[in-house]
Amino acid sequence: MFDYIARRILYAIPILIGVNLITFALFFVVNTPDDMARMQLGIKHVTPEAIEKWKSDKGYDKPLFFNQQKENLGNKLTETIFFEKSVAMFLFEFGRADDGRDIAEEMKSRMLPSLAIAVPVFFLGLISYVSFALLMVFFRATYIDFWGMVLCVALMSISGLFYIISGQFLLGKLWRLVPISGYGDGLDVSKFLVLPVIIGILSSAGANIRWYRTIFLEEMNKDYVRTARAKGLAEYLVLFKHVLKNAMIPIMTGAIAVVPLLFMGSLLIESFFGVPGLGSYTIDAINSQDFAIVRSMVFLGSMLYIIGLILTDISYTLVDPRIRLI
């Protein structure tokens, strides 16, 4: 298994370089270093000299990929914006944002608020989606199953933004049960989490419950279910003990892969609820054309996704002893 993991980690390096290269190319197609300088220096009184000074200070005064002015090939490739800005990231040195703040420090401080919402949404969501899906399977072909499906389709059809706005309107404004938005310290944070967590769970409920229901229904036709019933097991035991266990591989595939990505936060929820997480950090960086942050977040996102996929593979061996990672 360790050979397999080591191989996967080595495979990740060219993937990360590729992702970095594509991000870099796409970003600089839209924004030249001059554009970035203008964005940072503001609209008024921006002279060409000020732009040159900014570029020189931030290291954007070099060629993008190939430095013609250098003599040997090594320097031609290394003394470029791409090389200088990319290599350090593999050592987790993300550098400074255009406003001068250290990106790694900023990420550290923003990770917790993102997790404060993403972790409960993930775990409570997973438990409730699986439970509801099993219930619907239990009541399959009854009015509960039928109306449950109708409800799921309705939930899927509504935009995420609608959940946020109507949630804020009902629970925050009309019934005044929770703060409309905000974030706090210590225990105080709990009152700010209720609404985003409910909305986070609800907005994905329709699709997830239907997906898990389909998985469970497929399992219901298997021989071992018939055997369990023949043994005289109660139906709820058949479902929660046997069917759930055997349906773990597709559940794991969907769930474990996204666990590391929980650090990245939610763009929309964080923005609307004023949560200072990594999601809103990314959005702010895109709006202010801060390439240093965008590049770091894309790198972090791809790295976490790769970790998620490796963890998924490992988790298969835990839920199904027949699987070997070689």
Binding site: I165, Q168, F169, G172, K173, R176, P179, I180, S181, G182, S271, F272, F273, G274, P276, S280
Partner: peptide, 16 residues
């Protein structure tokens, strides 16, 4: 000073 990026929560919190 609280950071509020969206208009809707800002407006509703003012009314509250």
């Amino acid at each position: 000073f609280t950071r509020e990026k969206e208009n809707i929560p800002r407006w509703n919190k003012f009314l509250q």
